[in-house]
């Protein structure tokens, strides 16, 4: 069974997914960060493939991508770093990235390589839903790789249901109309949207992402969905870390424990 499906079967709520950019802050931190996240209690990890032009990302993830590329991160190197990670890591791991580097690598080869490395799913924000359905769904299914779709407050009910029907794994609920890395508390408009989606009683579990930065926003998200995804706040934490293991541990502690 795919590890993503298994996670949602065994854990009913408060699922914490953490995003970080591969090659950041140091080129070869990938394995250490994965390991520390698992030890600290993260349920799921999204490893970002850095891209020169990350359109859906705010300044923090843009910066991490720029640093990672300067450090020399490439797709080939990422797969080398991920070669043996399954010896130690048993939580589900996804790759997240923009379509162009994947196309240049060759999408078939990429999906095969993901499966061979033990990757469970992909998030490719600029791969259109229709394009995926028409061209790539059989390839992903054949390799047991889940493609995770996004929905936003502007997504119509009809389209949410269409995505739910085609989806497998979970649905990535973007918390507001924004790029990544917005700070602050959740407003009524957002919680209304979360409630609306909750009431649709979708087949797939949802995780809320974009704008989750602390205990409060994480808890709010968990009230309406199975859990939440945190990215920019984590990137900020590790950027100047002298002790990744310790800092990652206390970050996850703060996020999941009331002050």
């Amino acid at each position: 069974m795919n590890r993503i499906n298994k996670l949602f079967e065994t854990k009913q709520g408060n699922i914490l997914s953490v995003y970080f950019t591969a090659g950041f802050p140091q080129l070869n931190d990938t394995a250490n960060i994965l390991k520390s996240l698992q030890e600290s209690g993260a349920d799921l990890v999204e490893v970002g493939i850095p891209f020169s032009d990350p359109l859906a990302d705010g300044p923090v993830i843009q910066h991490s991508s720029e640093v990672a590329l300067k450090n020399g991160m490439t797709m080939k190197l990422l797969f080398e770093q991920l070669k043996d990670f399954r010896k130690e890591i048993n939580i589900p791991v996804l790759l997240m990235g923009y379509l162009n580097p994947v196309l240049q690598y060759g999408i078939e080869k990429f999906v095969q390589q993901c499966a061979a490395s033990g990757i469970d799913g992909l998030i490719l924000p600029d791969l259109p839903f229709k394009e995926y359905q028409e061209q790539y769904a059989p390839l992903f299914d054949q390799h047991n790789i889940r493609n995770i779709f996004l929905i936003t407050p502007q997504t119509s009910e009809e389209r949410v249901r269409l995505i739910d029907k085609a989806g497998n794994g979970f649905i990535y609920m973007v918390s507001s109309a924004s790029t990544t890395g917005v700070k602050g508390q959740m407003n009524d408009q957002q919680t209304d949207y979360f409630m609306r989606i909750k009431n649709y009683k979708l087949n797939n579990p949802t995780l809320i992402g974009f704008g989750i930065s602390n205990y409060d926003t994480f808890q709010t998200a968990c009230q309406y969905s199975k859990g939440a995804i945190i990215g920019s706040a984590f990137i900020n934490t590790i950027e100047n870390s002298k002790d990744l293991k310790k800092d990652i541990h206390s970050f996850i502690q703060q996020l999941t424990t009331e002050k």
């Binding site: 859906a56 924000p125 259109p128 929905i151 936003t152 502007q154 997504t155 119509s156 389209r159």
Partner: peptide
């Protein structure tokens, strides 16, 4: 051609 955009821009 085509429209390779994140879901965030789909409605627009």
């Amino acid at each position: 051609g085509g429209a390779y955009i994140p879901e965030l821009l789909y409605p627009n």
